[in-house]
């Protein structure tokens, strides 16, 4: 909620929202005039002022912005952890904006793979079990789960670390386990929140290289960051400021 508190309701939008178009059926993600409003006591605080954009399948996109810009709010909406106050959000041809908690949980399970800054692995579980978690909630049978999780770990070159717990792994290895966990269900999008924020620069490079490889294999990757180096690796950069899209540019 830090974004919301820092966004004053008095501030005039820097850029007027473009008039909403109907959602693009060809896009993987289609956001139309998204508003997110928080009630802070009697005051209403707008974290997002009518954001609209599309992300086609297979894109590698970075969302950047200073803290308090509405960047985290946008990420939570994209990741289906939250629903917009107004507007429509279509993810993989499903209207997510109207869903209840359990439907959102299902979408998160099937369509979204999260990668967090602090990895968020379960400390007591092995790498393999951590990767299996989304499959458990997806109701996949135990044998099939094992196979899929092993494959996902192999894809991030961690076959020999499967039975290790997070505290027996380096930071880069942990993040690779997290990436394997995010991808194990073959989600529509890989949503990374400051994925290199807790890593040294050399390991950060490794992780970004991995993202690039995953992108070349056809995954749709959304990285939320405030680090220009990380954003520069993406093929499209969306800048958020004061709850609005300030810039949206293809870099390559």
């Amino acid at each position: 909620m830090s974004d919301a508190t820092l966004t004053s309701p008095a501030v005039e939008p820097v850029v007027q929202p473009e008039p909403p178009r109907p959602h693009d059926a060809g896009s993987l993600i289609s956001m139309r005039n998204i508003w997110k409003t928080y009630e802070m006591g009697s005051e209403k605080v707008h974290a997002l002022h009518g954001v609209s954009f599309d992300i086609p399948k297979g894109e590698y996109i970075a969302i950047i912005g200073p803290s308090g810009s509405g960047k985290s709010t946008l990420m939570n909406l994209i990741g289906c952890l939250d629903t917009p106050s107004q507007g429509e959000y279509w993810l993989n041809a499903k209207n997510v904006s109207e869903m209840d908690d359990d439907e959102l949980a299902r979408i998160r399970n099937q369509e979204v793979g999260f990668v967090f800054q602090t990895f968020n692995l379960l400390a007591r579980a092995t790498a393999l079990h951590n990767v299996e978690l989304p499959l458990i909630y997806g109701g996949v049978s135990s044998a099939q789960r094992h196979e899929m999780a092993k494959k996902a770990l192999a894809a991030v070159d961690l076959t020999d670390r499967m039975m290790h717990r997070p505290n027996e792994l380096s930071g880069g290895q942990r993040q690779r386990v997290a990436i394997a966990r995010a991808l194990v269900n073959h989600p529509s999008i890989l949503l990374a929140d400051e994925p290199t924020g807790a890593l040294d620069s050399r390991t950060s490079m490794e992780i970004m290289d991995l993202f690039e490889r995953l992108h070349s294999e056809g995954n749709t990757i959304i990285v939320v960051t405030h680090e220009p180096d990380v954003a520069a690796r993406a093929h499209r950069v969306v800048s958020i400021r004061d709850g609005l899209i300030e810039k949206d540019e293809k870099s390559r």
């Binding site: 990741g79 952890l81 908690d101 359990d102 949980a105 299902r106 998160r108 399970n109 099937q110 999260f114 968020n120 379960l122 978690l133 989304p134 909630y137 997806g138 966990r181």
Partner: peptide, 14 residues
């Protein structure tokens, strides 16, 4: 942990 599980698709009932 609960947050992580929810982000990975755990429903309230789970």
């Amino acid at each position: 942990e609960i947050g992580v599980r929810k982000s990975l698709g755990a429903r309230q009932m789970d």
